[in-house]
Computed example of a mutant assay.
Amino acid sequence: MRYFEDLTVGETEAFGSYAVTREEVIDFATRYDPQPFHLDDAAAAATHFGRLAASGWHTCSMTMAMLVAQMQANPQASLGAAGIDELRWLRPVFPGDTLRCETELLEKTPSRSRPDMGSTRSKMTVFNQDDQPVLTFVARALVGRRPV
C-alpha cells in the first residue's frame, strides 16, 4: 500500500492498454453522447474527423478504466478524487486505436484540517498506439496518510 508519504513530486508512471472497439464507441455514444459523428460512418465521414470517432467523454471513461486497473494492481491509500482541471481532447480516438496512460505527480499538500490525508495534483496524458497524445488533464486526488 502506498500512502501520501510514499509519493514523490516529479515521479512518473506509465501503464494501461485499452483497445478501442467500434461496438463500444457506438454503444457509449448511443447512451451518453448521441452526436452523428460518434454513431454513423457517413455522418462522420462528412466531418473533420473523416470517420467514426469516439466521444471525448468515452475517452475519459476508458482512461478511468485503465487508472482503476492500475490502482488495483498497485494499491494506494486513495480516498477519491477532488476534481479534474485543464481537460483537453487533443486528437480524435478511433475504433482500432489502442490507448495507454502516463502520469506525473505535480504537487502534494498535507491537509491542514484532516491530518489523516493529503491532496495531490497529477498530470495525466493518454497516448494512442502511435505515441500521439490524445487527452490530457490534471487530476486532484485525496490520499490517506500512513497510520501512526
Rank of each mutant, 00 (worst) to 15 (best):
M1F: 13
M1Q: 13
R2M: 13
Y3D: 07
T8P: 01
V9H: 07
G10Q: 07
T12D: 07
T12A: 11
E13D: 15
G16P: 13
S17D: 14
Y18S: 11
A19M: 06
V20F: 08
V20M: 06
R22K: 14
V25W: 04
I26F: 00
D27I: 00
Y32M: 02
D33P: 02
P34F: 00
L39F: 03
D41E: 12
A42M: 08
A44Y: 01
A45F: 05
A46W: 00
G50A: 01
G50R: 00
G50S: 04
L52G: 01
A53M: 03
H58W: 09
T59Y: 01
C60I: 12
M62F: 14
T63R: 02
T63H: 11
L67R: 13
L67P: 01
L67H: 10
A69R: 13
M71A: 14
A73W: 01
N74C: 08
P75S: 10
S78N: 14
L79P: 11
G80N: 08
G83Q: 04
I84H: 08
D85N: 15
L87Y: 00
W89T: 03
P92G: 06
V93G: 06
V93D: 04
G96C: 09
D97K: 02
L99G: 05
E102N: 11
E102I: 05
T103Y: 11
L106F: 06
L106N: 10
P110Y: 08
S111K: 09
S111I: 07
R112E: 13
R112F: 08
S113L: 07
P115N: 13
G118P: 10
T120Q: 05
R121Y: 05
M124G: 03
V126H: 01
F127W: 11
Q129S: 14
Q132I: 04
L135E: 02
T136I: 06
T136M: 06
T136S: 12
F137T: 09
V138E: 10
G144C: 05
R145S: 10
R145N: 08
R145F: 07
P147Y: 12
